[in-house]
Amino acid sequence: METWKEFDQNIITHSAAHHLMAIDDLVGKLGYARVSDIARQLDITRGSVSISLKPMKEAGLVLQDENRHLRLSDKGQRLVNAVKNKRLLIQRLLSELLGVSEQQAEIDACKMEHLTSNATARRLVAFFRFIDSHEQPAGEFLATWQAHDRGSDEKPESCPTGENKCAADNVPEA
């Protein structure tokens, strides 16, 4: 399958991920989540929340009791846990390793968290196990990367594209 088509095959949309995480967050804080609470948290209308929740209820991700209080099913909770972990991993990768500002890393991680595959997330976990191991090679790896990063602007000939033009030239600075 072409990669771009995978976006449509994704189990949840960006919006759905935020609805599910809002429920998780509210249940953690208040012990319950109502449509009105989710609407306030996400700064959208109640109508919009209710319409968005309909397919999530049908998919068995969200459960509603007789008081119209919402909670995540086991399946929904597993999905939220996975998305949250992916967000943290991507955020760490962007800010700690690549030097992206924490704010920008959070924004970009939010965009990628629900689209990243479990396989990629598991490789990121393995990578951070190495980084956090405090073994000498991990420290050396980080130090080498940081030293290279500081001086990389001075060597445009070592551009990763290896073609006529440096990749950085095609990506304007913010």
Partner: peptide, 27 residues
Amino acid sequence: DIRVNCPNEPLSGREALRQALIFEEEA
């Protein structure tokens, strides 16, 4: 400040009324 996303899927009359009931109850 509204964000409306309506899919391009055909609906039956009943389904349209069901959806309308959802947002009317919220209002």
